[in-house]
Amino acid sequence: MTDSGHGNLLSVTDLRTYFETEDGTVKAVDGISFELKQGETLGIVGESGSGKSVANLSLMRLIPNPPGKIVSGSIVFAGRDVLKLSPREVRKLRGKRIAMIFQDPMTSLNPFMRVSKQLMEVTRLHLGHTKKQAREHAIKMLEHVGIPDARSRVDSYPHEFSGGMRQRVMIAMALSCRPELLIADEPTTALDVTIQAQILELINSLKAETGASVILITHDLGVVAGMTDHIIVMYAGKVFEQATTTELFERPGNPYTCGLLRSVPDPTDEQGKLYQIPGLPPDLAHLPPGCPFAPRCERAEEICRREFPPYVQLTREHYSLCHFASDVYTKSQAQEGNR
């Protein structure tokens, strides 16, 4: 995975998305930055509530307002700042150049509308298809994502498909206009394990075919291992670690990432006991002054509870938000050597 010659398709800088709630301001995404090159796949990992979905909905300006608001930052997609576009221009991006697949295929399709109509809607809107063209295109897309008998099933309603098939329909819909960026928000979380692998495989092959960039969101590190070039680890609305996939798996530089890695089920482990990071994610409306992970961290010391940690650069593409980033990194390197 070399990056020579390719520019950034997407470059997010200091993005902050807050929600005003009765409980106070929820800083769901608080100053994250990352870049995505053309044709690359970026994994975003983190526990529930860490801000993964909010971050990605922000990219498409789909944050419900009120209560949500993107308070600062820039999102430069293909050379233009999405946050500075008019609503009309944003709509031209959505579904055409940036497409999204959501977590729950059971509820993400309109239950009252035939699948054909839901698919045709996108290409008629963005590609100016006639009814007939759009219909043919819809059937072609369904065949493409592996729905058997696409021609006869295209007029079904969503409830007539299984969960896995519905997610395929969602993928067909997302890829209808050949987007440059595909955001898949936990596309397999709601599906059972065998189907999960099929769906990921499908996304992978379609990506290879269309050359699209992909952002793959998940809370399961196991899922992203084989599919991504880079990984961002999010916690409490912040990027805790950022590295290439191999680097992150082999030499993690953040205690939170280490915890996540330990909680990935290891098929070679005979005992099969699963590690879990102790405690719960913090309340984003009332964050303590220090490191938000400190109360749950094995490595935490006095300073962690007092001062917000620095964002330490470990190698050219490896960053970690931790007071002891270098220590953790060195230890990982040593462990890697032992193995």
Partner: peptide, 15 residues
């Protein structure tokens, strides 16, 4: 309006 399929509809670029 809060439901998932409305979010999908918005993500398609519909007005």
């Amino acid at each position: 309006m809060r439901s998932d399929y409305i979010r999908t509809a918005r993500a398609k670029g519909l007005s």
